[in-house]
């Protein structure tokens, strides 16, 4: 990516949403507790392919990388994740309802 041609730098920013701050916190905490390394996260991000940078937002890519490393590290299983994500979908239509605050 460094050195590639690209368009103008988009200057608009946004305030971080709660869920994004939580992704950041989980990344910092799990990393400091030794559940993965920055290199492990990098590998997961690189494995997503270049189009992940177009299709997904920054913290979407990071939660995917954190999740992949935690499953690989045996912290929880893919089945546990899938079951929980289904449960969460049934809680409500918005983040606030599904996260229960």
């Amino acid at each position: 990516m460094g050195g590639d041609a690209a368009g103008p730098v988009p200057m608009e920013g946004h305030d971080f949403a709660l869920w994004e701050k939580r992704v950041d916190a989980l990344m910092v905490l799990c990393s400091s507790k030794g559940h993965f390394t920055v290199d492990g996260l990098r590998r997961a991000l690189e494995d997503m392919g270049e189009d992940a940078f177009e299709k997904h937002s920054y913290y979407e890519r990071w939660i995917a990388a954190v999740n992949q490393n935690l499953i690989e590290g045996g912290v929880y299983t893919l089945e546990e994740l899938a079951t929980r994500m289904d449960d969460i979908a049934a809680r409500g239509a918005t983040y606030g309802e599904a996260a229960r605050g």
Partner: peptide, 15 residues
């Protein structure tokens, strides 16, 4: 938190 829940938000909550 009022916007419709996304797949990635569900993943964050689950993780």
């Amino acid at each position: 938190d009022d916007a419709p829940l996304t797949y990635w938000q569900r993943m964050e909550i689950a993780v």
